[in-house]
Amino acid sequence: MKEVKVHAANADEALADGAAALGVSPRQAQVEILAEDEDGVTALVTVPDEAQAESAETAGDGDSLDEVCARARRSLQTVLELMGMEARCEVQSANEDEIVLNILGEDLGIVIGSCGQTLNALQFLLNLMVNKGGRRRRLTVDAEGYRDRRRQRLEELAGEHARRAKAERRPVILEGLRAAERRIIHTALQHDPDIVTYSEGEEPHRRLIITPRS
């Protein structure tokens, strides 16, 4: 059994501090208040032996970045095979916030779908499947560089509509864009001093408006 004496504002903070000092999760530790004074509590935080053993095992419980990447890649590969696709996938980049998976193969039109709707459905489901329980990491699924091409197309679109809004001195409305696509447009135009962009309405009918700055 490991133990540590801590002083903190309250029992919860004592537990959190003590657990951190002992290198375990607060769930595995117990807190016992030894004394209270005007600026908090003195507490003894203990970790039972069985919890220590469990902690060593669960350290690799599939929540490490490598494990999540491997699980995400395996799940995506299985889905592609069950869809009858002759494709494989790889982890393109990975950090604590975002994991990008890329699908490689010929003729990936079926996994992309019209306007990327199949790719987006796949990405949405994979996020739910892989992030179940543990801490959430955003998974992005790409195929044949589709996301980059779509981004470029949206940036061109942003430029064209911004020019039209300025030339015709009236707001231009863009409909049918997903949140991530609207963000690309907002970002592309944020430094243009002559226009303002914003979104209005509720999903799934939310629209983006490009309007000349008066």
Partner: peptide, 11 residues
């Protein structure tokens, strides 16, 4: 549910 349908239709 709709994402599941989209995937099944694509397959």
């Amino acid at each position: 549910a709709n994402a599941i349908r989209t995937l099944a239709k694509a397959a």
